[in-house]
Write a protein that binds this DNA or RNA. Sequence first.
DNA 1: TTATATGATTAAATCGATTTCATGAAAAGC
DNA 2: GCTTTTCATGAAATCGATTTAATCATATAA
Lengths: 335, 335
Amino acid sequence: MDMKIVDVAKRAGVSPATVSRVLNDSSLVKERTKAKVLAAIKEMDYHPNSAAKHLRSQRTMMLGVIVPDINVSYFAEIIKGIENMAYARKYKVIICDSDNKAEKEQEYLALLPNRAVDAMILVTPLIDNAILYEYADKGHTIGIIGKTVTHERIPSCKTDNVKFSYQVVDHLIEQGHEQIAYIGGYPDSVETYERLEGYMKALKEHHIPFRPGLIDNGDFEEEGGYAALLRLLDAKTPITAVYVANDEMALGVYKACREKGIRIPEDLAVVGVDNNRITKYLLPPLSTVEQPKYTMGAIMAEKLIDRLTDNEFEDKHHFVIDSEVIIRESSVRKA
Amino acid sequence: MDMKIVDVAKRAGVSPATVSRVLNDSSLVKERTKAKVLAAIKEMDYHPNSAAKHLRSQRTMMLGVIVPDINVSYFAEIIKGIENMAYARKYKVIICDSDNKAEKEQEYLALLPNRAVDAMILVTPLIDNAILYEYADKGHTIGIIGKTVTHERIPSCKTDNVKFSYQVVDHLIEQGHEQIAYIGGYPDSVETYERLEGYMKALKEHHIPFRPGLIDNGDFEEEGGYAALLRLLDAKTPITAVYVANDEMALGVYKACREKGIRIPEDLAVVGVDNNRITKYLLPPLSTVEQPKYTMGAIMAEKLIDRLTDNEFEDKHHFVIDSEVIIRESSVRKA
DNA sequence: TTATATGATTAAATCGATTTCATGAAAAGC
DNA sequence: GCTTTTCATGAAATCGATTTAATCATATAA
C-alpha cells in the first residue's frame, strides 16, 4: 500500500541501508547522495513505518505517564512539563488517567515489559512500592514525581514539603495565631506526613505546644476537607487558623465556613497547597503554595530520557525543588 | 534478553502459531492446549513485544489526541472521555498539547502516515481544513471534536452552539435586559460564529434590534475577555448584560468589573460557556453552559474505534449533543 | 607506482510477532 | 468401512525498518 524504504532506495539509486542512514542522519553519507535520497523521500512523500523502526531498534521513543486525574490542574501541569520536554527530544507521551485505581496503574505498567514505552513516569502512585521495585529490578526505567522511594534505580522529583509547610505555619504564627489546625490528605501518604512534620517544626520553634486534637485528615478532595473541618469545629479545642494539605480540600473548608457563617480570615485563617488556578479567584483569595509542577514534569522527563540515551546513571537522582509560599487575603489579619 | 514467543512455544510443546492464537484468543484452539500455553506464559512471565505485533498486524492500537492546552478543564475532561473509552477497548492514547501552535498540530498529524497511531482526534484544531482533508483523502482516520467540517470521511462531535446560545440570551431577556453585549472568541472560529447566531436569533424573536456596536471578540482567554469588556464599556452604547463565549473570557470580564467598580449582576449580568470548575466558586457564581465534554470525548473515541475495527462507515457521522444552561447568581436580578 | 588507510556503500541478517497455506486428526455422512 | 467435512495445529512467509560485516572507491603514504 504505502511506500517502503526499498522503494525510496530504488528511486534514489542507492541501497535501503543508505536511506536508513540519511533518515537517522548518520555522519557517513556523502552530501551528494544524501541530497539525492532526501529528494526521493520528498517526491514520494515517504514516511517511515514506526513499528518496523521500533522493532528493529528496540526503542519506541515513547514515555508513559500515570496520573490519578488529568482534570486536576496539578497533574495537568506536570503532564505539560513532561510532554513539552518529550517533544523537544522527539519522544511521544502515552497517558493513563488511573482514576485512583491501583489496578489500572498496574495494567499500564505492563507497557514496560511489552516494550510499548521506553520509560514510565508515575505521579504520586498508589501502587505498592514492592511492585515498582520489581519492575526496576528487572531493568525497566521508571521515575516518580511527588514522592521519593528508596530504590537506587528509581529517580524521583518532589518539593520540600517540610520546608514550605514550616514557612506556611511560621507565617500563620506571625499573624498572631496559636490555635492552628492541620488537615492532611490520605492518612498514609508521604505528603500528608511531611507537611505535618513542617507544621510541627514551626510550632516547636515558636514554643507552641503541639495538640493532637488539632490534627485531622481528609482525602485530598473537596469533600474530605469539608468533613474534616466540621469535625475540627465540633471538637472542644477552638481554632483560629487551619493549614490544609491541598487546595482541593481548602475548597471544602471554604464551603463549610460559608455554611457555618465563619468569616475568612477574620474568624479563621486558611492556607492551602498547590496554587490551583481557582485559588486566586476565590473570595477571599486563598493563600497557598506554588509547586513548580511544570518544572518537575520537565526535569523528570529529561532525566529519564538522558538515562535511556546514555544508559548512564547519575549518582544523585532525587530532586527536591523549592516551592514558593503565596500569601493572599485568606491568611492575613485585617488592619 | 527477554522471552520470545518461540520460547513459550517450546516450553508448552506447541508451535509459535498456536501461542499467537491463544494470545489473541482465537476460537480454534483446544481447551487443553490453551491451558498448557497459558501456563507456560505465566510461568515464564512472558510479555509479547508490541512493536513486533504492530508491525505484523498493521495496527498499533493507539489513538492520538491533539488539544490546545491540557490544563484547561474543558480539554482535560474531553481527554478523560477519550482515554476511558480507549482503555475499555484496549487502545492507548498519545497526547499532544499543541499550545495553540498550528505547526505542532501538524507535526503530530504525521503520526498517521508513520502508522504510529491508528487514528487521530483533533479538538478545535487551528490547522487548515485543507490539510485535514488531505489526510482523510489518503485514507487516514481522523475525527474532530468541537467543530464540524464538511468531509464525508471526517466524523465530528459538537454541541448545538446556536441552541444553547439562544437559550442563554432568551434567559437574559426574560430577566429584563435589552442592551445585551456579546463577546466572541477567535474572530473566525465556528464557535464564535454559531454562538453569535444563537444570540441574534433570540434578539430577533423578542423583537429587540440588533446593534453591531454591542459585539466584540476576544481570544477565548482571560486577557481577551478583559480587553473586550473594557472596549464595550468605552463605547457609547450602554450595556446591562453580556454573553461571553467561554468562561475563561468571563474571568477577564469579572476582573474588569472589579477594577471599574461594576457590580455583578446588579450593574451587569454575565453568562459564560463551558461550566469550568472555577465558575461555581466565583463571586457571584457564574451562570454558564455545561457542555458534555466527557461524553463528547467518549463518543468520538468509540466511533473511530468502531470504524477501525469494522472498517465500516456510518452515513451519519456528525454528532450534535445537547448542552445544559446553568443559571447562577451572575445573571439573576436580585429581588 | 604500489601498498595502506579511510570513507562510503551494499548485501544480507535481524528484530518478534501474525497469518496463510498445508497437513494431520477427529467427526460426520453415506 | 470408506469418503468427506470440520477442527486443530504447524511450517514458513511476512511486516519494514536497522545494522553488521563485507566490499568498493578514494585518498594518503611510502
